[in-house]
Amino acid sequence: ETGKELVLALYDYQEKSPREVTMKKGDILTLLNSTNKDWWKVEVNDRQGFVPAAYVKKL
């Protein structure tokens, strides 16, 4: 879809709370919100949640 910003997972991340999502290094995720410098909201496999901003980079 146009207008979607994507990020690349630089590291594996295992969710530690229900508000977070698990990702694997190399995953491409849809970026939903990056206003917080530490935690970015992403969508992966129809799930939305937060990942550490340092673990992903914008494509």
Rank of each mutant, 00 (worst) to 15 (best):
Y13N: 00
V21T: 06
Y13F: 08
P18N: 11
K57P: 02
A53S: 13
K16A: 11
G49L: 05
R19W: 15
Q48W: 08
G26C: 10
D27V: 04
V56L: 15
A54D: 12
K25S: 07
W39P: 00
R47A: 06
Q48K: 10
G26F: 05
A54P: 08
R47G: 05
L59M: 10
E20V: 05
M23I: 15
K4N: 10
Y13A: 01
N45H: 14
T2V: 12
V51S: 01
E43T: 07
T35W: 10
K16I: 07
G26E: 02
V56S: 01
E1K: 12
E5K: 09
K37I: 10
L10N: 03
V44D: 11
R19C: 15
V7I: 08
R19I: 13
E1S: 15
L10W: 04
T30F: 12
L6H: 09
L59V: 11
F50T: 03
K4T: 11
Q14L: 13
K24C: 11
K41L: 15
D12P: 06
E1N: 14
V42S: 00
N36F: 08
G3L: 12
R19Y: 13
L29I: 08
K57E: 14
Y11T: 09
K24W: 10
E20D: 05
K57N: 06
L8E: 12
D38I: 14
W39F: 07
M23H: 00
L6R: 10
V7Q: 01
K57F: 09
L31R: 01
V21N: 03
K37Y: 07
D12I: 02
E15D: 04
N36Q: 09
V21E: 00
A9G: 03
Q48D: 07
R19N: 14
D27F: 04
T35D: 15
R47Y: 05
S17V: 04
K37M: 10
K37G: 10
S34W: 07
A9E: 01
L32F: 04
R19K: 11
G26H: 05
I28Q: 05
W40G: 00
L32E: 02
N33G: 07
L6S: 07
K41G: 05
T35H: 11
I28V: 10
P18G: 09
E1C: 15
L8F: 08
T35V: 09
P18M: 11
L32G: 01
L32S: 03
E43I: 08
W40I: 05
E5A: 11
K25R: 10
V56W: 01
